[in-house]
């Protein structure tokens, strides 16, 4: 891919991203202590509450001062700080290789940007190309120092037509049991439908973001004449004769497709964002996603 030569993240973008952090509307239990407060009471320097002692509690947390005054045992509770699991799924089907820059490149940039935000905040970041969960699972990353590994992994992602959207997500869901934020970067152009794929994510009770990536060539195709359209994924053929009414009908179909995806997501508590590859990544991250509440 020619786009691999381009840097995924520019220094200006990095400086911009450093100030952001990933937000989730749900609070999940992280495996390791992280930089974010948890609803769970735990061990930290920040006091949270008292509760009655019950046998078996760690004696180290008994408030002896209270015991002296009230002659009763109380346990001091502290706020627990924990990490966040951030998953970014990149659809690397062949259809993503279209467009200039390609949709895949765009998805990589976006994934890198979001991943970098997570790394900066010591969240657990895992980027993965769909379908590679079994063969080549993405590395779980933490800390700014892992940025280069992340970029290296992203660079290696090549378009591959072997896995469908459903299978890819199913694999991901089976292999990754943790809860957290999932960002799906896809064009949703799967003939088996994207609905069943998204349902797998829903079952994991994750905070799901669907970023629907479309190339300008798809939004407003510039085709002419009698054409035999060949699907790059499965070689399927559609014969068309381009005419103005046909193009109008195509645009109506596209609008209906986007609208149905948006509705599907919204109804199920997923955040949906349609984005053209013509929109700059920094604008999406600091603009759209900020408004959507994914970053702050």
């Amino acid at each position: 891919m020619s786009t691999t030569s381009l840097p995924l993240l520019s220094p200006q973008l990095l400086a911009q991203l450093e100030r952001l952090e990933l937000v989730t509307r749900k609070i999940f239990r992280g495996r390791m202590k992280g930089e974010r407060r948890s609803r769970r009471k735990g061990q930290s320097v920040e006091f949270a509450d008292f509760r009655n002692y019950v046998p078996g509690d760690d004696l180290r947390f008994i408030d002896w001062n209270l015991f002296a005054r009230l002659d009763r045992l109380f346990l001091k509770l502290f706020l627990e700080e924990e990490d966040l699991h951030f998953y970014c799924l990149i659809d690397a089907s062949r259809s993503m290789s279209f467009g200039e820059p390609s949709k895949l490149q765009f998805a990589k940039q976006l994934a890198a940007a979001l991943g970098f935000i997570g790394l900066c905040r010591a969240d657990r970041v895992k980027l993965e190309a769909l379908g590679s969960s079994r063969t080549q699972p993405g590395p779980a990353l933490r800390g700014r120092g892992s940025m280069w590994r992340m970029l290296e992994y992203l660079d290696k992602i090549e378009p591959d037509g072997s896995t469908s959207l459903v299978d890819g997500i199913k694999d991901f869901a089976l292999c990754n049991s943790g809860k957290g934020i999932v960002v799906l970067l896809s064009d949703l152009m799967d003939k088996q439908g994207y609905e069943s794929a998204l349902r797998f994510l829903l079952a994991r009770e994750m905070d799901i973001y669907v970023i629907h990536i479309l190339a300008p060539e798809e939004i407003d195709p510039e085709v002419q004449g009698d054409l035999k359209l060949v699907d790059c994924e499965d070689g399927d053929i559609a014969e068309i004769t381009v005419s103005r009414p046909l193009m109008e009908r195509y645009k109506r179909t596209l609008a209906a497709f986007i609208e149905s995806a948006r509705e599907f997501c919204t109804r199920r508590g997923m955040s949906y964002l349609m984005s053209s590859t013509a929109t700059p990544v920094d604008q999406i991250v600091s603009g759209y996603l900020r408004r959507k509440g994914l970053v702050r």
Binding site: S95, F98, M189, E218, V223, L227, C232
Partner: peptide, 9 residues
């Protein structure tokens, strides 16, 4: 013939 990302739409 023209290759397209998807004949889906």
């Amino acid at each position: 013939p023209l290759e397209v990302p998807s004949t889906f739409l």
